[in-house]
Simulated assay, not measured.
Amino acid sequence: MPEQTKAPINVGLSEPDRQAIAEGLSKMLADTYTLYLKTHNFHWNVTGPMFNTLHTLFEQEYTELATAVDEIAERIRSLGFPAPGTYAEFIKLSSISETEGVPKAEEMIRLLVEANETVIRTARETLQKAEQAGDESTVDLLTQRMSVHEKNAWMLRSHLE
């Protein structure tokens, strides 16, 4: 349900299309925030011979993700809907599960590859809705996000070879 506005939204997208896209973006936001938290946690807790490399890599990735969650949330708002912003909402919406304890560095990498690929799949689902509705702004955002996560998954995966 869109929030009450003083002026109706008339950007060439129907309310049902905007709502469907906002719902998909909310899942994308939840996945991205969960990945942000997982990456930051691993940054803090990584140990072992790859410490410096992974500590730096994880910091680069979580810093980029912090900007991304803002962009996704603002796109949801631009469509006229409230952005989810609590852990409870993110847990319900996210396809990425939290990691209990502190895994070894190699397991951290594997979990982050898996999580980045999950974000890509979520983006692809929402991208289809946005394309069908003619929402080029969301298509552009999701295309950029997919590119970032594909590159991150590749870079992380390279540490496992």
Rank of each mutant, 00 (worst) to 15 (best):
I9N: 09
T86I: 05
R124I: 00
K151M: 12
E98I: 07
V119I: 10
L35R: 15
A83I: 04
R110S: 14
S14R: 01
G101A: 10
E114L: 03
E117A: 04
T53W: 08
I72A: 10
F81T: 03
A20I: 00
T63C: 00
V148D: 12
A22S: 15
Q60S: 10
S95I: 02
P84N: 09
T56R: 12
L13F: 05
W154N: 04
F90I: 02
Q128N: 08
S158V: 02
L65F: 05
Q132I: 06
G80F: 00
V113T: 08
E106L: 10
T99Q: 11
I91C: 03
M108K: 01
P84L: 05
R77E: 06
P103L: 01
E150Q: 09
A153S: 13
A105V: 04
D17F: 11
R145V: 08
M155Q: 09
E114P: 00
Y33G: 08
E131V: 07
L93T: 12
N45C: 01
K151C: 04
K129E: 10
P103W: 01
L156M: 11
T99H: 09
E71A: 15
Q19M: 13
L57Q: 13
R18E: 06
T47C: 07
K104V: 13
V119H: 12
Y36F: 11
M1I: 07
K92D: 14
L160G: 08
E131K: 15
N45G: 06
E98K: 14
A115H: 03
P2R: 11
L156W: 04
L13T: 10
E61D: 15
Q128K: 15
S14T: 11
L25M: 11
T56P: 00
K38T: 13
T143Y: 01
G134D: 12
L57R: 04
N116D: 11
E117D: 14
V119A: 13
M50W: 02
V46Y: 02
F58A: 10
A73S: 12
A66T: 14
G85T: 06
L65T: 08
I91R: 14
E74G: 08
D17T: 09
Y36Q: 08
A83W: 04
A66M: 15
G12Y: 05
L57W: 04
V11H: 11
L93A: 09
R75W: 03
G24M: 03
A153F: 04
I109R: 01
F42W: 07
F42I: 10
R145W: 08
A22G: 13
E125W: 07
R75I: 06
